[in-house]
């Protein structure tokens, strides 16, 4: 049973002519971890907003086709009901701080207060979520006193604590160092293993190869390739359409042309590349 089901979705922002998404068909299973790649303007963010209900409820504009998450139709639902099922975190950590709270603990509880979770349960859930993302020691700090990476983890925790069925992440690691990125990816992986469905727009190919179950490549609002990370990330189409690809893939491709790469498939990560070159 697909928890996310997009059928023939086309969307235009208000006052624009060109659709931002075109004929998107996408099904996702419960607990699946799907990465979305694509150059800037390919429609990654729009796809994220569509899944999270902000298209069309917040952005208005013209949506055709059907968007279904957890058996709810977006056109028959309200945004404030929709966000109970689908959580959204995005790129700029600073703009995700509510501003209505003085400490990290209160900040993470903000969403739970809004949806009316009883006090004792709220405290438990906040503590648990902070432990999971490794920010328990920040509880009493002001959210504004944190570094970008810490703020991004607070933003992620603030969404996780609401326990959505589907988690939508729009380039959440773009402001993070490798250590922070690793933490985010491993938390997200854990959530997927516990049954949360994750869709992640991301540029960092090696991380996707290591963590995601499936990759979708978007180009000019359309799905270009959809498949296993190993296949999608090394496909020649990506290079043709100007996607940024992993440096290990480019090195191995050049090596294959020179007859130095013996395997059928190209590598995405350092480990794969090292193994392949050793053969």
């Amino acid at each position: 049973m697909a928890i996310v089901n997009l059928q023939n979705v086309t969307y235009k922002y208000p006052l624009t002519e060109k659709p931002a998404l075109q004929n998107i068909d996408l099904q996702m299973k419960e607990g699946e971890f799907v990465a979305v790649i694509g150059p800037n303007g390919a429609g990654k963010s729009t796809l994220c907003y569509t899944l999270a209900g902000f298209v069309p409820h917040f952005f208005k504009g013209e949506l055709t086709g059907s968007v279904e998450v957890a058996r709810n139709e977006t056109s028959k639902s309200n945004l404030h009901e929709w966000v109970l099922n689908v959580g959204l975190a995005f790129q700029n950590p600073f703009n995700q701080i509510s501003g209505a709270k003085y400490t990290v603990f209160e900040e993470i509880a903000f969403g739970l207060e809004n949806i009316g979770v009883p006090r004792e349960e709220m405290k438990g859930r906040v503590k648990e979520a902070m432990k999971m993302t490794g920010i328990s020691d920040l509880a009493d700090r002001s959210p504004y006193s944190l570094s970008g990476g810490q703020q991004q983890r607070v933003a992620l925790t603030s969404i996780l604590v609401m326990q959505p069925k589907v988690l939508v992440l729009d380039e959440p690691t773009s402001q993070m160092d490798p250590i922070g990125t690793r933490e985010v990816f491993s938390v997200v992986r854990t959530m997927a293993e516990r049954g949360m469905t994750v869709i992640l727009a991301e540029h960092k190919m090696e991380w996707i190869a290591n963590f995601a179950d499936r990759v979708i490549a978007l180009h000019e609002g359309q799905i270009l390739v959809d498949g296993k990370p190993g296949e999608v990330l090394t496909s020649d189409v990506l290079t043709e359409k100007g996607f940024g690809i992993s440096r290990y893939t480019s090195v191995a491709r050049r090596a294959r042309e020179l007859g130095l790469w013996k395997r059928d498939t190209l590598p995405v990560t350092l480990e794969e590349a090292v193994k392949g070159f050793k053969e």
Partner: peptide
């Protein structure tokens, strides 16, 4: 605005308090 809506700012549930 998107960030706080994603966290139920416009929720019609009765609010609770930490």
């Amino acid at each position: 605005a998107i960030a706080i809506e994603a966290r139920g700012f416009t929720s019609t549930h009765k609010k609770t308090y930490l």
